[in-house]
Structure formats: C-alpha cells, structure tokens
Simulated scan of single mutants.
Amino acid sequence: MKPVRKAIIPAAGLGTRFLPATKALAKEMLPIVDKPTIQFIIEEALASGIEDIVIVDGKSKRSIEDHFDSNPELENNLKEKGKDELLKLVEETTDINLYFIRQSHPRGLGDAVLTAKSFIGDEPFVVMLGDDLMADETPLTKQLIDRYNTTGESTLAVMKVPHEQVSEYGVIAPEKEVEDGLHQVNSFVEKPKPEDAPSDLAIIGRYLLTPEIFEELENTKPGKGNEIQLTDAIDSLNKRQHVYAHEFKGKRFDIGSKIGFLTTNIEYGLNHPQTGEALKQYIKDLAATLD
C-alpha cells in the first residue's frame, strides 16, 4: 500500500461572496488576523506528513504564487534591520514543495481534482478545501491518513450539522459504523433538501482518495450548476470499492461566508499573542454599549 504523500488544494473559484474585495485579490489570500487563509491549509498538510502540494488555481490568483515565492528585497530589508522573527515568518512560506496547475474554466470541484491527475499519478492523495479551517490536537488530514493506513480505502471527513443546513453540503447515507467515528457509506447525496437528507453527516472539505477516483471523474457527467461534482464521482467509486466517512470531533471554522470569516478572525484574534488581550478588552467594552 503506497503512502499518502500528495495533496490537492483547489483554489480556482471566483470568490463572488467576498466581492468587491476579491475582484483583484484571490479569496484564499484574505487574512485570518495576519496570515492568508490558504497558508493555514498548507500548514495542516505539512503537519500531517504531506510532502508535495499542488494548488489548482485560476485567473487572478497570482497573489497566491507570489506569497509562497521568495522576495529577496523584503528579506534583505528585514535582515539589515535585524527583524529576525519577521524574517523567519517570511522564509517559512518559501521552503515548501509547492506546485501550481491552472484550471482554465470553472467546471466545478470534480474538474479541479481531475486537472491534477498527472501530478498525482497512481498514488492515494488528499483534497483540502480552503473554505474550512479545522482545529484539533491531531490535524484532520492526519486523522484521515491514519484511517487510510488501516482500511486502505478512500475516506472523507464528515461532521454533524443542523438538519436545516444539510442542503448546503454533500451528505452521506451511512451503511454501518465499523468502529467509533468511522462509517461505511451506502451512498452520497449532493446538497439534498432537508426532507430528503439521509443523515445530518455532512462532508466538510477534507477528502482522502485513491487514484481510481480519476476514472470516475472522467466518466462523471455535469450535475448541479452544470459542474463536475466530486461527490457524484465518489458515489460511483463507492460502487467499486468501499468508501468510508471519518466523523470529525474537533472544531470547524467555516470561512466561506462573511459571517464565518468575521467570527473566525475574532476567535483567532483572541488566541493571537499580539492581539488577544487588547481584542478581549475591546469586546468587553463594546458589549457594555450594546443592548
């Protein structure tokens, strides 16, 4: 069984929910306090043992490439001024095996994954979506890799969500729970109506997939939104080999919406060594003025 060494990070979306900020700036570069959101995803990958990462980007995403490239002028300036801590932060973003592939047309998540087929080859890999930040003692991606090392099969991250919100997600119909928090899946449903949802276990932006998924993607017809849905391809794969769902018990930060982005910034800001105390006091003072 081959080890899981590679990750795909889809980043070709237009970021329309954050216009006008994303008109010229990649959504993935919007910061949580002082760090771009995509950097959190890459740090999770590295902490999970991933060695090679490909970012599937699109037009107007040059800022992502620039962020992870060397900036000699900035680095020399920081050296000359003795700002060693800031220099370390800058240099950490360049020492990564990072690759970029362009998704020419927005044909959906499934198409973005298929674009990276040559990069992945015949190895298992993870897909990490940038709209979700995950907090747990063991990184969620590492949890999926540990499950794969036991089962040898594709494994998705799921989490219970309020029933009225299931229409926003891909949802699993669990067949049985083979061990604590690990479900064998009967089928997958992309964004069902609440009355049609087979469960409240929603797919949450981390996938560990075997390379057989590429054949399924190549044969998957456009679904909702006239896009190639990754969930549809996984459902087809599940008819050939078992697909499992790992129930995440940590904390998920949904940064794909304005309110989620704002509340995530507040929570991370409260835990940031440079902003925590001042932000906490500001919130207390602000709360005292509200009804």
Results as ranks from 00 to 15, higher is better:
183 H>Y: 14
65 E>Q: 13
156 L>P: 09
119 F>Q: 13
87 L>E: 01
267 E>D: 07
149 N>A: 14
247 E>Y: 00
254 D>N: 15
168 E>G: 11
31 P>Q: 11
47 A>W: 03
257 S>Q: 11
125 F>Q: 14
138 T>F: 07
208 L>D: 01
274 Q>V: 01
162 P>M: 11
70 S>W: 13
28 E>Q: 13
83 K>L: 12
255 I>P: 07
172 I>T: 03
65 E>F: 00
132 D>R: 13
226 N>L: 12
274 Q>K: 10
22 T>L: 12
269 G>C: 14
274 Q>Y: 05
236 S>G: 00
213 I>Q: 12
112 A>C: 01
50 I>A: 04
164 E>P: 02
86 L>R: 07
240 R>M: 11
181 G>A: 02
110 G>K: 05
124 P>V: 05
51 E>I: 06
65 E>P: 02
172 I>L: 01
286 L>W: 06
280 K>T: 09
14 L>E: 14
285 D>L: 09
190 E>D: 15
175 E>S: 13
277 E>Q: 06
78 L>E: 07
5 R>Y: 08
108 G>C: 09
33 V>N: 08
141 T>W: 01
162 P>G: 06
248 F>P: 06
134 M>Q: 10
20 P>I: 06
98 L>F: 08
143 Q>V: 06
23 K>G: 06
71 N>F: 12
146 D>N: 15
55 I>H: 02
74 L>S: 10
247 E>C: 00
254 D>A: 11
2 K>G: 07
26 A>S: 15
197 A>W: 05
224 K>A: 10
79 K>V: 01
229 Q>H: 01
160 K>I: 02
143 Q>K: 13
